[in-house]
Protein backbone atom coordinates (compact mmCIF):
# COMPACT_ATOMS: atom_id res chain seq x y z
CA UNK A 1 0.00 0.00 0.00
CA UNK A 2 1.16 3.50 -0.73
CA UNK A 3 2.02 5.59 2.30
CA UNK A 4 1.45 8.84 0.44
CA UNK A 5 -1.00 11.32 1.92
CA UNK A 6 -3.92 12.94 0.10
CA UNK A 7 -2.04 16.15 -0.94
CA UNK A 8 0.73 14.15 -2.62
CA UNK A 9 -1.78 11.84 -4.30
CA UNK A 10 -3.72 14.86 -5.54
CA UNK A 11 -0.52 16.36 -6.93
CA UNK A 12 0.19 13.06 -8.64
CA UNK A 13 -3.25 13.06 -10.27
CA UNK A 14 -2.92 16.69 -11.27
CA UNK A 15 0.48 16.01 -12.83
CA UNK A 16 -0.85 13.05 -14.77
CA UNK A 17 -3.84 14.99 -16.02
CA UNK A 18 -1.61 17.89 -17.09
CA UNK A 19 0.42 15.50 -19.23
CA UNK A 20 -2.79 14.03 -20.62
CA UNK A 21 -4.12 17.47 -21.53
CA UNK A 22 -0.85 18.46 -23.21
CA UNK A 23 -1.00 15.35 -25.35
CA UNK A 24 -4.71 15.88 -26.05
CA UNK A 25 -3.98 19.44 -27.16
CA UNK A 26 -1.28 18.19 -29.51
CA UNK A 27 -3.79 15.71 -30.91
CA UNK A 28 -6.34 18.42 -31.53
CA UNK A 29 -3.64 20.49 -33.24
CA UNK A 30 -2.98 17.59 -35.56
CA UNK A 31 -6.66 17.55 -36.37
CA UNK A 32 -6.40 14.02 -37.65
CA UNK A 33 -7.10 10.72 -36.01
CA UNK A 34 -4.68 8.31 -37.59
CA UNK A 35 -5.73 4.70 -37.43
CA UNK A 36 -3.72 1.79 -38.77
CA UNK A 37 -6.54 -0.78 -38.88
CA UNK A 38 -9.98 0.83 -38.79
CA UNK A 39 -12.15 -1.35 -36.60
CA UNK A 40 -15.54 -0.90 -35.03
CA UNK A 41 -16.42 -2.57 -31.76
CA UNK A 42 -20.10 -2.73 -30.93
CA UNK A 43 -21.96 -4.09 -27.95
CA UNK A 44 -25.45 -5.18 -29.00
CA UNK A 45 -28.02 -5.62 -26.22
CA UNK A 46 -25.49 -7.13 -23.86
CA UNK A 47 -26.80 -8.55 -20.62
CA UNK A 48 -24.95 -10.43 -17.95
CA UNK A 49 -26.38 -12.14 -14.90
CA UNK A 50 -24.76 -14.19 -12.17
CA UNK A 51 -26.99 -16.64 -10.30
CA UNK A 52 -30.06 -15.00 -11.80
CA UNK A 53 -29.25 -11.47 -10.61
CA UNK A 54 -28.58 -9.16 -13.59
CA UNK A 55 -25.31 -7.23 -13.49
CA UNK A 56 -26.31 -5.12 -16.49
CA UNK A 57 -29.11 -5.40 -19.03
CA UNK A 58 -29.55 -4.50 -22.71
CA UNK A 59 -26.33 -2.54 -22.94
CA UNK A 60 -25.62 -1.22 -26.44
CA UNK A 61 -22.94 1.07 -27.76
CA UNK A 62 -20.58 1.29 -30.67
CA UNK A 63 -17.16 2.88 -31.11
CA UNK A 64 -14.77 3.26 -34.04
CA UNK A 65 -12.30 5.69 -32.56
CA UNK A 66 -11.43 7.71 -29.51
CA UNK A 67 -11.75 7.09 -25.81
CA UNK A 68 -14.76 5.31 -24.36
CA UNK A 69 -15.04 5.78 -20.60
CA UNK A 70 -16.60 2.83 -18.79
CA UNK A 71 -17.86 4.18 -15.49
CA UNK A 72 -19.73 2.68 -12.59
CA UNK A 73 -19.51 1.90 -8.91
CA UNK A 74 -17.73 -1.12 -7.48
CA UNK A 75 -19.61 -4.25 -8.47
CA UNK A 76 -21.48 -2.57 -11.30
CA UNK A 77 -19.92 -4.95 -13.83
CA UNK A 78 -17.13 -2.90 -15.44
CA UNK A 79 -14.58 -5.72 -15.35
CA UNK A 80 -17.12 -8.28 -16.56
CA UNK A 81 -18.21 -6.01 -19.42
CA UNK A 82 -14.61 -5.46 -20.50
CA UNK A 83 -13.90 -9.19 -20.39
CA UNK A 84 -16.94 -9.81 -22.57
CA UNK A 85 -15.77 -7.15 -25.02
CA UNK A 86 -12.29 -8.71 -25.03
CA UNK A 87 -13.74 -12.15 -25.79
CA UNK A 88 -12.72 -13.57 -22.42
CA UNK A 89 -16.24 -14.08 -21.07
CA UNK A 90 -19.63 -14.75 -22.55
CA UNK A 91 -22.67 -12.52 -22.09
CA UNK A 92 -25.92 -14.01 -20.83
CA UNK A 93 -27.54 -12.49 -23.90
CA UNK A 94 -26.57 -10.11 -26.69
CA UNK A 95 -23.35 -10.09 -28.67
CA UNK A 96 -20.15 -8.21 -29.40
CA UNK A 97 -19.54 -7.26 -33.03
CA UNK A 98 -16.13 -6.43 -34.42
CA UNK A 99 -15.73 -5.33 -38.01
CA UNK A 100 -13.52 -3.23 -40.22
CA UNK A 101 -14.63 0.00 -41.85
CA UNK A 102 -15.78 -1.98 -44.87
CA UNK A 103 -18.24 -3.79 -42.56
CA UNK A 104 -16.24 -6.99 -42.97
CA UNK A 105 -16.63 -9.04 -39.80
CA UNK A 106 -13.26 -10.05 -38.39
CA UNK A 107 -12.36 -13.73 -38.21
CA UNK A 108 -11.95 -15.34 -34.80
CA UNK A 109 -8.16 -15.24 -35.00
CA UNK A 110 -8.24 -11.60 -36.18
CA UNK A 111 -10.54 -10.72 -33.28
CA UNK A 112 -8.18 -12.35 -30.82
CA UNK A 113 -5.36 -9.95 -31.70
CA UNK A 114 -7.47 -6.96 -32.77
CA UNK A 115 -8.55 -6.34 -29.20
CA UNK A 116 -5.80 -5.75 -26.65
CA UNK A 117 -6.76 -6.23 -23.03
CA UNK A 118 -5.21 -5.67 -19.62
CA UNK A 119 -7.06 -6.13 -16.36
CA UNK A 120 -6.27 -6.57 -12.70
CA UNK A 121 -6.49 -10.37 -12.93
CA UNK A 122 -4.11 -10.65 -15.88
CA UNK A 123 -0.87 -12.38 -14.89
CA UNK A 124 2.22 -13.17 -16.94
CA UNK A 125 4.78 -15.89 -16.31
CA UNK A 126 6.76 -15.23 -13.14
CA UNK A 127 9.53 -17.64 -14.12
CA UNK A 128 10.24 -15.62 -17.26
CA UNK A 129 11.72 -12.19 -17.81
CA UNK A 130 9.53 -9.48 -19.33
CA UNK A 131 11.26 -9.94 -22.69
CA UNK A 132 10.77 -13.72 -22.58
CA UNK A 133 7.10 -13.25 -21.74
CA UNK A 134 6.41 -10.95 -24.68
CA UNK A 135 8.57 -13.06 -27.01
CA UNK A 136 6.56 -16.15 -26.11
CA UNK A 137 3.19 -14.55 -26.77
CA UNK A 138 4.38 -13.11 -30.09
CA UNK A 139 5.80 -16.48 -31.19
CA UNK A 140 2.78 -18.50 -30.10
CA UNK A 141 0.42 -16.04 -31.78
CA UNK A 142 2.32 -16.60 -35.02
CA UNK A 143 3.89 -13.13 -35.11
CA UNK A 144 7.43 -13.44 -33.78
CA UNK A 145 9.25 -10.21 -32.91
CA UNK A 146 12.90 -9.30 -32.61
CA UNK A 147 14.39 -8.68 -29.19
CA UNK A 148 15.06 -5.08 -30.18
CA UNK A 149 11.36 -4.54 -30.85
CA UNK A 150 10.37 -6.09 -27.54
CA UNK A 151 12.93 -3.97 -25.69
CA UNK A 152 11.47 -0.89 -27.37
CA UNK A 153 7.94 -1.88 -26.37
CA UNK A 154 8.95 -2.44 -22.76
CA UNK A 155 10.88 0.83 -22.71
CA UNK A 156 7.71 2.53 -23.97
CA UNK A 157 5.93 1.50 -20.77
CA UNK A 158 8.82 2.72 -18.64
CA UNK A 159 10.60 -0.52 -17.76
CA UNK A 160 14.36 -0.11 -17.45
CA UNK A 161 16.50 -2.46 -19.51
CA UNK A 162 17.88 -4.09 -16.36
CA UNK A 163 14.31 -4.78 -15.18
CA UNK A 164 13.29 -6.26 -18.55
CA UNK A 165 15.90 -8.98 -18.05
CA UNK A 166 14.77 -9.88 -14.52
CA UNK A 167 12.20 -12.54 -13.79
CA UNK A 168 8.69 -11.14 -13.44
CA UNK A 169 8.24 -12.84 -10.04
CA UNK A 170 10.75 -10.29 -8.71
CA UNK A 171 8.72 -7.31 -9.97
CA UNK A 172 6.87 -4.83 -7.80
CA UNK A 173 3.11 -4.41 -8.30
CA UNK A 174 3.68 -1.26 -10.32
CA UNK A 175 6.22 -2.94 -12.61
CA UNK A 176 3.78 -5.80 -13.20
CA UNK A 177 1.15 -3.24 -14.12
CA UNK A 178 3.52 -1.69 -16.69
CA UNK A 179 4.15 -5.15 -18.12
CA UNK A 180 0.38 -5.72 -18.38
CA UNK A 181 0.10 -2.55 -20.44
CA UNK A 182 2.94 -3.75 -22.69
CA UNK A 183 1.10 -7.06 -23.12
CA UNK A 184 -2.16 -5.31 -24.02
CA UNK A 185 -0.44 -3.28 -26.75
CA UNK A 186 1.81 -6.13 -27.96
CA UNK A 187 0.03 -6.55 -31.29
CA UNK A 188 -0.76 -2.85 -31.84
CA UNK A 189 -4.48 -3.59 -31.57
CA UNK A 190 -6.98 -1.16 -33.11
CA UNK A 191 -9.15 -1.68 -30.00
CA UNK A 192 -7.46 -1.39 -26.61
CA UNK A 193 -9.30 -2.34 -23.44
CA UNK A 194 -7.79 -1.22 -20.15
CA UNK A 195 -9.37 -2.13 -16.84
CA UNK A 196 -8.11 0.07 -14.00
CA UNK A 197 -4.72 0.63 -15.66
CA UNK A 198 -3.59 3.26 -13.13
CA UNK A 199 -3.75 0.91 -10.14
CA UNK A 200 -0.45 0.72 -8.25
CA UNK A 201 1.30 3.15 -10.59
CA UNK A 202 3.43 6.08 -9.46
CA UNK A 203 3.25 9.46 -11.19
CA UNK A 204 5.72 8.41 -13.88
CA UNK A 205 3.71 5.24 -14.46
CA UNK A 206 0.49 7.22 -14.80
CA UNK A 207 2.08 9.54 -17.32
CA UNK A 208 3.27 6.50 -19.26
CA UNK A 209 -0.23 5.02 -19.31
CA UNK A 210 -1.72 8.36 -20.40
CA UNK A 211 0.77 8.38 -23.30
CA UNK A 212 -0.13 4.80 -24.23
CA UNK A 213 -3.83 5.66 -24.12
CA UNK A 214 -3.30 8.72 -26.26
CA UNK A 215 -1.28 6.81 -28.85
CA UNK A 216 -3.88 4.05 -28.99
CA UNK A 217 -6.66 6.62 -29.17
CA UNK A 218 -5.07 8.08 -32.29
CA UNK A 219 -4.85 4.65 -33.85
CA UNK A 220 -8.29 3.39 -32.92
CA UNK A 221 -10.51 2.90 -29.88
CA UNK A 222 -9.63 2.78 -26.20
CA UNK A 223 -12.15 1.45 -23.71
CA UNK A 224 -11.06 2.53 -20.26
CA UNK A 225 -12.63 1.49 -16.97
CA UNK A 226 -11.72 3.28 -13.81
CA UNK A 227 -13.15 4.07 -10.41
CA UNK A 228 -11.54 7.48 -10.60
CA UNK A 229 -13.38 9.99 -12.79
CA UNK A 230 -10.16 11.98 -13.19
CA UNK A 231 -8.73 9.19 -15.36
CA UNK A 232 -11.34 9.94 -18.04
CA UNK A 233 -9.89 13.02 -19.67
CA UNK A 234 -12.22 14.19 -22.42
CA UNK A 235 -13.74 10.89 -23.49
CA UNK A 236 -15.55 10.78 -26.83
CA UNK A 237 -18.14 8.49 -25.33
CA UNK A 238 -19.19 7.37 -21.89
CA UNK A 239 -20.86 4.15 -20.80
CA UNK A 240 -22.33 4.37 -17.33
CA UNK A 241 -23.01 0.99 -15.85
CA UNK A 242 -25.00 2.27 -12.91
CA UNK A 243 -28.09 2.04 -15.05
CA UNK A 244 -26.48 0.27 -18.01
CA UNK A 245 -27.09 3.29 -20.17
CA UNK A 246 -24.93 5.21 -22.62
CA UNK A 247 -24.61 8.91 -23.25
CA UNK A 248 -22.43 10.99 -25.54
CA UNK A 249 -19.81 13.00 -23.69
Amino acid sequence: MSARGPPEAAASYAGGIRVFKRIADARRADGILRRTVPTTIAAESLSKAFSGAPLFRDLSFSASSGLVAIAGRNGSGKTTLLKILAGLARPTSGRVRLETDGARPLSTSEQRLAVGWAGPDLALYGEFTAIENLAFFRRAAGRPASEAELVRRLADVGLAEEAMRRRVEEYSTGMKQRLRIAFATLFDPPVLILDEPMVALDLDGRETVYRVIETARKRGTVLLASNDERDFAEPEQRVDLAGARRREA
Binding site: S109, R112, L113, A123, F137, A141
Partner: peptide, 8 residues
Amino acid sequence: LALRKTIP
Protein backbone atom coordinates in the same frame (compact mmCIF):
# COMPACT_ATOMS: atom_id res chain seq x y z
CA LEU B 1 -6.36 -15.26 -19.45
CA ALA B 2 -3.26 -14.12 -21.35
CA LEU B 3 -3.08 -17.45 -23.15
CA ARG B 4 -6.76 -17.40 -24.08
CA LYS B 5 -6.47 -13.82 -25.25
CA THR B 6 -3.67 -14.44 -27.72
CA ILE B 7 -3.45 -18.10 -28.73
CA PRO B 8 -6.15 -20.36 -30.18
